[in-house]
């Protein structure tokens, strides 16, 4: 029994596909709206080797760009804000306000600023992700264990040393929480932007176009590709975290 344990996660997948086959076989749902799994996966396979693959790469590019920009701004800024509680408190309302504002509401503004190109999609996603990361990094730094800071201090660490040797590392687990949430949000924003903001490519565009043309297998294929991308990005960050923040939660 123990040897089969690693296979447990596949139970849900097999179950889902079985239910899907069953629904198609019994024609519970209109066959036009719900193609069979085989048709869908064939569309996914064909698509990923062609146009869908190209869209996939476009979306990966935009999401990656936005998360890189967001992290490059938010991590240093978060450390600065977090290391001075006063500074953070004075900006807390602004950060919380924009963090709570749906990033999609910012599209028109960014459209005016950057036009309809990639810049808009990337910058709105970066904006949303940045606030999430900023918030988490600042909190990670602020919640650095007091004993640990004191310990560094009694060992003769300077303020700058305490920041780089202790606060920074103390905040890493929380920073990764921010990065994972940030990348999920960035993907959501990018896909939505690709659907509606005069886009010619990307997974969002692919889903939307397939739906408009009523090509259901292609639409499902694009949805699965987007799902796989979201899951993959999350997994990637988890693996990086496990590798570099091995003490997290210990």
């Amino acid at each position: 029994m123990k040897r089969l344990e690693p296979l447990l996660p596949f139970v849900g997948v097999v179950g889902l596909v079985a239910v899907w086959y069953f629904a198609v076989w019994k024609q519970i749902v209109d066959p036009v709206l719900l193609p069979s799994p085989t048709t869908t996966f064939w569309a996914l396979w064909k698509g990923m080797n062609g146009e869908l693959g190209f869209d996939f790469i476009k979306t990966v590019y935009r999401t990656t760009m936005s998360i890189v920009i967001a992290a490059a701004i938010a991590i240093p800024l978060g450390i600065v804000l977090g290391s001075s509680e006063r500074l953070y408190r004075s900006l807390e309302f602004v950060i919380d306000f924009f963090r709570s504002t749906p990033a999609s509401a910012m599209f028109p503004l960014f459209l005016v600023l950057f036009g309809v190109g990639d810049e808009t999609k990337i910058s709105v996603a970066a904006f949303g992700a940045m606030l999430v990361i900023l918030f988490n990094v600042a909190y990670g730094v602020m919640n650095a264990r007091k004993t640990r800071l004191l310990a560094a201090k009694v060992m003769g660490a300077s303020r700058l040393r305490v920041l780089s040797d202790v606060m920074l590392l103390e905040s890493l687990p929380q920073t990764f929480v921010g990065l994972r949430n940030g990348v999920s949000l960035a993907l959501v924003i990018v896909v939505v932007a690709e659907m509606f903001i005069g886009s010619q490519d990307g997974l969002g565009h692919s889903v939307f176009e397939a739906q408009q043309m009523f090509e259901m297998p292609r639409m499902y294929a694009a949805i699965f590709a987007a799902g796989a991308l979201g899951y993959g990005l999350n997994l990637l960050f988890l693996l990086i975290e496990r590798r570099f923040v091995h003490w997290s939660g210990k």
Binding site: R145, T147, R148, D165, V166, L172, H246
Partner: peptide, 10 residues
Amino acid sequence: QNYREALFPW
């Protein structure tokens, strides 16, 4: 007293 929080886990 609190060795868990005094040592550097990294």
